[in-house]
């Protein structure tokens, strides 16, 4: 790890200005950044500590919904009474990520900005286009069991590791960003990018953009939700496939549905094709299967992850089934 300057931010504007001036990285919980710095994957010369900024609140918004500060810890967010009551899928997603003693430290903003767990990205002795643009992708012909089946490119097949972001994608959350040009908002589903030919860019943010909060819109009455994660261990492992589902069924007809998938793409994958198939249709096993298959029609599995296609299909179908026919 190279030596670095450490500065404690006094306010949001100052933190952003510091980052714009020095190329500093923002340091919050550190659970991903410090990990990468030890590996030599990230080597910032300046760290701006944002832990003491007043971004750690969770407040109910006037028109309904919730504003979650960027430095709210994952543990606190998962345990927040309003989140547990109104956004149970978010609570579940958070609780299925990492471990209790990591969630104490990890923050909302940091969770969104965590980087891929691709074996080769984390190993500086191997080529990786995300880490070192132009060096090549080692995963495409290497160990790629964990990797993407949707939206990947010939340059990168990594997946985004967050659970929380998948739930937020299904919630149509909005990310509040403060950049050198002032504050702005980014829909969460637009925050992360597909790799294309610039896999080193995980998100649409620039280096000096600071996430300050995430807004969660209210869920309409009668909506049900779930988060389901399939992984190689019963706990404490990244998703092979996960699904966040928000479903509103009335009179046995799908009135509203939002599906996001984790573990399958470079970003939380909103399954809009599946949603399109479902919306307005009567609930039935056949419709659920049709929706899942529509979403996965373009899946391009790699040498080691063909199983993710039937897995994702089954997980989508069973999630729909369980929510649609859940006891009222």
């Amino acid at each position: 790890m190279i030596p670095f300057d450490y500065r404690r931010a006094a306010d949001v504007e100052g933190a952003v200005a510091e980052a714009a001036r020095t190329g500093a990285a923002f340091l919050a919980g550190g659970t991903n950044l410090v990990d990468r710095m030890k590996l030599g994957v990230s080597a910032p010369e300046v760290l701006v500590d944002i832990n003491r900024l007043p971004l750690d609140g969770v407040e109910e918004l006037p028109g309904g919904g919730l504003r979650v500060g960027a430095t709210v810890r994952n543990s606190d967010l998962a345990a927040h009474p309003v989140v547990r009551r109104d956004y149970p899928l978010l609570s579940r997603a958070l609780l299925s990520g990492a471990s209790g003693q990591l969630r104490t430290l990890a923050t909302t903003g940091g969770n969104l900005l965590q980087r891929t767990r691709c074996l080769y990205f984390q190993d500086t002795s191997t080529p990786c286009n995300k880490r070192e643009p132009g060096s090549g992708c080692s995963a495409i012909d290497g160990h790629n069991r964990q990797h993407a089946i949707l939206g990947a490119s010939e340059h990168c097949v990594a997946v985004h590791p967050s659970d929380m972001a998948v739930a937020m994608a299904a919630l149509d959350a909005t990310v509040l960003v403060h950049g050198p040009g002032g504050p702005r908002t980014v829909p969460l589903t637009d925050l992360h990018r597909l790799p294309g030919d610039e896999p080193h860019r995980d998100t649409v943010l620039s280096a000096a953009d600071l996430i300050t909060a995430v807004d969660l819109p209210p869920l309409p009455r009668g909506t049900r939700s779930l988060y389901r994660k399939v992984r190689d261990r019963a706990s404490y492992a990244f998703a092979l496939v996960s699904v966040a589902l928000v479903l509103h069924v009335d009179d046995d007809v799908v009135r509203d549905v939002r599906i996001a998938l984790g573990g399958v793409a470079h970003k939380p994958w909103r399954a809009r094709r599946a949603e399109g198939v479902l919306r307005g249709r009567p609930v039935s096993a056949d419709v659920f299967l049709e929706a899942a298959e529509a979403e996965l029609a373009d899946a391009r599995p790699l040498s080691g992850n063909a199983f993710k296609v039937p897995l994702a299909r089954n997980v989508i179908v069973s999630a729909l089934r369980d929510l649609a026919w859940e006891e009222r």
């Binding site: 767990r117 074996l119 080769y120 190993d123 002795s125 080692s138 160990h143 019963a234 706990s235 492992a237």
Partner: peptide, 19 residues
């Protein structure tokens, strides 16, 4: 291709957890 174990940590080399 490289000749080494690439899942060389406890996040990727899974040993059983309590669960």
């Amino acid at each position: 291709r490289f000749g080494h174990v690439v899942n060389h940590d406890l996040a990727e080399y899974h040993i059983a957890t309590n669960s």
